[in-house]
Simulated assay, not measured.
Amino acid sequence: MAVIANAKVETLPEPWSGAIRSGRHQLITDKPESFGGQDQGLAPYDLICSGLISCTMITLRMYAQHKGIDLGAFQVEADFCTNKEGREWIERRVHFQSPPDEALQHKVLDICSKTPVTKTLLRSLEINTQLV
């Protein structure tokens, strides 16, 4: 077994707020005011989207560097969506300052479908919980 990531959250005094620590980094998680939180930090589904888009950005930049391609400046966005039937999905968008040619656009889409976090989200993931 190899651990590739680790994070810990500790409750804060405000309802639904927590301090997340991962390595040397920390951030606040909370719920929006409309859900009774203080909106002091990212909500859990925002964190899922953040993981996906950061992995997408890093993977695209690594690919471009490896192939000697200049993708220029770009942004990646994601929306976590749900409907009345309970179906859930993520809409991801990559915006380039200077759009790549058609062949590279197809390659970018292919790479996006193969990022590590994308692959994790697309397959079943076992979650084991222990009380310690």
Rank of each mutant, 00 (worst) to 15 (best):
M1W: 09
V3M: 11
A5N: 10
V9S: 12
E10L: 12
P13T: 14
P13V: 13
W16H: 15
S17T: 09
S17G: 08
G18Q: 11
G18I: 10
G18C: 10
G18A: 14
R21N: 05
G23H: 04
R24G: 01
R24W: 01
Q26D: 02
I28V: 15
I28A: 01
I28C: 02
T29W: 06
T29D: 00
K31H: 04
P32N: 07
P32E: 04
E33F: 03
S34L: 13
D39I: 06
G41N: 06
L42C: 03
L42N: 05
P44R: 08
P44N: 05
D46A: 11
D46Y: 06
L47G: 00
L47E: 01
C49F: 05
C49V: 09
G51S: 15
G51C: 14
L52P: 00
I53T: 14
S54F: 07
M57L: 11
I58W: 08
T59M: 12
M62Q: 10
Y63A: 09
Y63K: 11
A64M: 11
Q65A: 13
Q65N: 11
Q65H: 12
H66M: 12
H66A: 13
I69D: 00
D70L: 01
D70E: 09
F74V: 04
Q75F: 02
Q75N: 07
V76Y: 04
A78M: 04
A78L: 09
F80S: 01
T82V: 05
N83D: 15
N83I: 10
K84I: 06
K84A: 15
R87L: 10
E88Y: 08
E88W: 06
E88V: 09
I90F: 12
E91A: 14
H95D: 02
F96P: 01
P99K: 11
P99R: 12
D101K: 13
E102G: 01
A103N: 08
L109M: 08
C112D: 07
S113K: 13
T115P: 01
P116N: 07
P116A: 06
T118D: 06
K119G: 01
T120A: 13
L122H: 05
R123W: 04
R123N: 08
L125I: 13
L125F: 06
I127P: 00
I127N: 02
Q130N: 09
L131M: 11
